[in-house]
Each structure stands twice: as structure tokens, then as C-alpha cells.
Nucleic acid binder design. Structure first.
Lengths: 139, 139
DNA sequence: AGCAGGCATGCAACAACAGTGCAAAGTTCA
DNA sequence: TGAACTTTGCACTGTTGTTGCATGCCTGCT
């Protein structure tokens, strides 16, 4: 993906494109799985942890990435699709956490069924993570 | 609930009943919501954090409590029902996390629908947390 | 009763992660 | 060029999860 395309992707979400943010976005696009802050940190070794943290925070606030809380206990991040609004029940999908390799996968095609919550519980977001063994670890 | 009944509850799960464990169990039974280690710690002020941590760990390993990872990022615990085996898809239910008061509720009556995972992804457990606003915070 | 072994508890310490404050550097725009 | 604002980097803090080790308690055997 060209720099121009990356810039457009940021601007579509009203995020001011900077060198740092382009690098982070490029890394996110290249990932199959959801990544943690540490993953990002060990990939972009010359950048500061705080900056990466704040970059992800900005991305999240502008709906470019979503957060996942899996059984590992720490936060992971994954790119949203272009038209995603990150709202329940339309734009939410299932995630899979492999307890062996500790990777977290997005399953965008598996949308989350609407649940019949008790009265006055107003949903805005859903964290749905199936834990188990992924194909690479099953063998 | 009498001490005897609490002891029985522990023994039914093959957990050696001690004073500490009875106190923790009693507290868990009295809670509407899932609790964090810190909650427990601030209730049982005279006990050590490590002991409480290991008590919850023991309870979890014996299927007496289950863990929930909500949007707050930290682990919460809640009692399982007597016949619960904590396995997907039968014994798993939906949780609700209120982003205002940060409480996490169990909805044992809302079981989790079986998802049609891609080939070779083997599920064992599910973490399903709906985030939003609870009745007390909605008004 | 006395003792040995095993489990539970408490203390200390550590690593990882999340988050904040502040100052320096970079960018934008007049 | 310079002022205002944004972004980045550094230093530091607090919390949580976790482990190691020493002590204490309970149990069962002699």
C-alpha cells in the first residue's frame, strides 16, 4: 500500500497523518492477528512506548482500530473495516484467542447475535472472545 | 448461609475448607456483581493480597468461580452455579459491563449461542461481555 | 503426646502494563 | 519569522498479576 493510500485512510477518519502514525497503520495492515502494545513496541524499536500507546489511543478514538480483551488479560488492537462504526449490534464481530500461542484472531464475518438483555441495560459495545486452540497449534 | 453449608459447597468442588476460603466464598455469595481482586482485598482488609489471589486461583481451578475480562481491562471473578462445568457452549453466559460505574453483572439465563467457527479452531471457553450503561447509571 | 510431612498463609519482591506530566521538537498558518 | 498548536520522547507513578521463600497450622502416624 502506498504512502498516499495510508494517508487517505487516516484522513478518512479525521486523523492527522504523521510519520509515526503511518508506520503504525502500515504495521497494523500487515498483521493477520490483533496486536498488543508490546508487539508494536518490539516491531518499531526506535519509537517510544508512550507515543505508540497514544497513537493507538487516537486510532481507537477515531474508530480506526478496535480493542479486544482476551484471556491473556492485556489489551489487543485490530484494524476496523473502512465502514465500521464499532457499535453494537451491527459492527461487532467474534474474536478467537488461542491459549497456546496466545494469538488473537478477528473473524469479521462472524457477527454477534443481538442478545435480549434485561430491561434498562443499554448496550453500546461488545467484547466476544472465544478461547481455544487455533489450527497451527492443534497439530 | 451457615458455615456448614459453605463448607459443603467447597467440598463439593474438592476444595479443602479453611477459614480464609470460607470468608472469600461468603463474600462472593453475597455479591450481585463479579468482583475484582482489589474489591476482595478492600473487603477483607486483614488478609494478604497474595492469599486472596491464590484463593481465587484455587476456586477457579476447581470450577467454583469463573473469570471475566471486561473493558476495564482487569480480571473479575464470579461464582459458578452448582452444576456448572465452565465449558463452551453449554455452561457459558453473557456478562454486562457498565462503563460508568464499572460494575460487571452476570446474566446466567443468557446462554451463548454456538458460533460457526472456521475449520480447526477448537473452542473451549468463551468471554462474552456487553458494555454499556446499567439501570442505576442510566437515570 | 510428640513428631514429620504437607498444605495454607503472609511477606517481600518483581515484571508488565496502563497512564500522566512536562518539556522539547515539529508543523501550520498568518 | 514568529505564535499557536500538535505530536513526540522522557521520566516517573500506580496497579495488577505473579512467584519464591519462610513460617505457621493441621493431619496422621507412632
Amino acid at each position: 500500500m502506498t504512502t498516499k493510500e495510508l494517508e487517505d485512510k487516516l484522513q478518512a477518519r479525521d486523523i492527522h497523518p504523521t510519520a509515526m502514525r503511518l508506520l503504525v497503520l502500515e504495521y497494523l495492515i500487515g498483521q493477520e492477528e490483533a496486536i498488543s502494545l508490546s508487539d508494536l513496541e518490539s516491531h518499531l524499536t526506535h519509537s517510544d512506548r508512550t507515543t505508540l500507546y497514544r497513537t493507538l489511543k487516537t486510532f481507537r478514538e477515531h474508530g480506526l482500530v478496535h480493542q479486544i480483551h482476551d484471556d491473556s488479560g492485556n489489551t489487543k488492537y485490530a484494524l476496523c473495516r473502512d465502514d465500521c462504526t464499532c457499535s453494537y449490534p451491527d459492527d461487532m464481530h467474534v474474536h478467537f484467542y488461542c491459549s497456546r500461542c496466545e494469538k488473537t484472531y478477528c473473524f469479521p464475518h462472524l457477527t454477534i447475535p443481538e442478545m435480549d438483555l434485561p430491561d434498562s441495560f443499554e448496550p453500546t459495545y461488545v467484547n466476544f472472545v472465544v478461547t481455544g486452540t487455533c489450527p497451527s497449534c492443534a497439530s
